[in-house]
Simulated scan of single mutants.
Amino acid sequence: MEVEAIQSLFHPHQVLKHDEAEKAAIDAETLKNAHCVHFSCHGYFNFEDALKSALILAKSEFTPPPPTDDPSRYLPLKDNKLLDLQKCLTLEDILRLDLTNCRLVTLSACETGITDLTSTSDEYIGLPSGFIFAGSPNVVSTLWAVADISTAIFMIQFYQTLQQQPELSVVLALQQTQKWLREATVQDLLDWIDSCAVISEERRGQMKFTLQWGKTAESKPFSSPYFWAAFCAIGQIN
């Protein structure tokens, strides 16, 4: 939902969705020329080996048994499945990218901003710092598993704010969006959906149904920090 809406704000744009979003399809040369890179997927932080932290891409999960060439590349998941890190975008891969032309990398995914707070020397090492090292001056990531509908609304508004107020820094645009989502009533959000040109008619109906389910027009469905405080900006402050 969020990517479908956000992509219309960028011309040209390239979108890899569902099974298309595999590691082999992520072209380093394309990223080198990108002004903005947006990942809407799951993230993983490896507390034992930070370089094996990764954005989980398509076709990276499979059912055992795994090949025996390198057991360290496979991680156990739920439902007796394994994750093949060589088919994910790991922190080690990210460090090799050239993102010097990229203003913003957004990791709109679960737990992409986590680092090891118990490590006194490597606390800063994580997926966001990898993208900063690769050359992007700004990275937006998340600190916990975020809800789908609130994240979609948040990201659409965030990108619109950046587009409509180009003088704003990423940090201020993020702060403004957090405050907006926290204070918005159901009626405010319904009005926003109707006026948001980048949301399709089909998606508008889905979003409205979800927002109105069991709520009054005056309630603030996303006032809890759970919905908006997970998003953090790292990088330039101006």
Results as ranks from 00 to 15, higher is better:
Gln157Phe: 01
Ala34His: 11
Asn101Glu: 15
Gln86Cys: 09
Ala197Trp: 15
Ala50Arg: 12
Ile199Arg: 03
Trp192Leu: 05
Ala145Gly: 02
Val170Cys: 14
Leu181Asp: 03
Ala58Arg: 07
Leu83Phe: 11
Thr63Met: 11
Leu143Phe: 09
Arg103His: 15
Met155Ala: 01
Leu107Asp: 04
Gln176Cys: 09
Glu167His: 12
Asp19Ser: 13
Leu127Gln: 10
Thr120Asn: 07
Leu89Arg: 11
Thr177Phe: 01
Asp98Phe: 02
Met1Tyr: 02
Thr120Ser: 12
Ala197Phe: 15
Val198Ala: 11
Thr216Glu: 14
Phe62His: 15
Ile234Ala: 12
Leu181Asn: 08
Ile26Arg: 06
Asp19Asn: 08
Lys17Arg: 11
Ala50Trp: 13
Leu107Pro: 01
Ala152Met: 04
Val186Gly: 11
Pro12Ser: 06
His11Thr: 05
Gly113Tyr: 12
Met155Tyr: 04
Pro128Thr: 08
Gln163Thr: 12
Asp49Glu: 07
Gly205Thr: 00
Phe158Cys: 04
Thr161Met: 07
Trp228Val: 01
Pro225His: 03
Leu82Ala: 12
Gly113Leu: 14
Glu201Cys: 03
Trp192Glu: 04
Ser108Gly: 05
Leu211Tyr: 03
Ala21Ile: 07
Ile132Asp: 08
Leu181Ala: 08
Lys17Gly: 08
Gly214Arg: 09
Ala28Leu: 04
His18Pro: 00
Leu95Arg: 13
Pro65His: 08
Gln178Lys: 15
Leu190Phe: 05
Ser200Arg: 06
Ile114Cys: 05
Cys110Gly: 06
Val15Phe: 07
Asp122Asn: 14
Trp192Cys: 01
Asp116Phe: 09
Val105Trp: 01
Asn101Asp: 15
Gly135His: 10
Gln86Thr: 14
Thr63Cys: 08
Phe39Leu: 01
Asn101Phe: 14
Leu174His: 02
Glu48Ser: 09
Thr118Ile: 02
Gln178Leu: 06
Asn238Tyr: 10
Leu51Pro: 00
Val146Gln: 07
Thr30Pro: 01
Pro71Phe: 05
Pro66Met: 03
Gln236Val: 03
Pro137Cys: 07
Leu51Met: 12
Thr100Ser: 15
Gly130Phe: 11
Thr142Ser: 06
Lys215Cys: 08
Thr161Val: 04
Val3Glu: 08
Asp188Tyr: 05
Ser119Asn: 13
Leu77Lys: 05
Asp93Met: 06
Pro76Trp: 14
Leu83Gly: 03
Lys179Leu: 14
Val171Gly: 01
Gln163Trp: 10
Leu51Gln: 12
Cys110Thr: 00
Pro137Gln: 04
Asn46Asp: 15
Ala5Pro: 07
Phe133Leu: 13
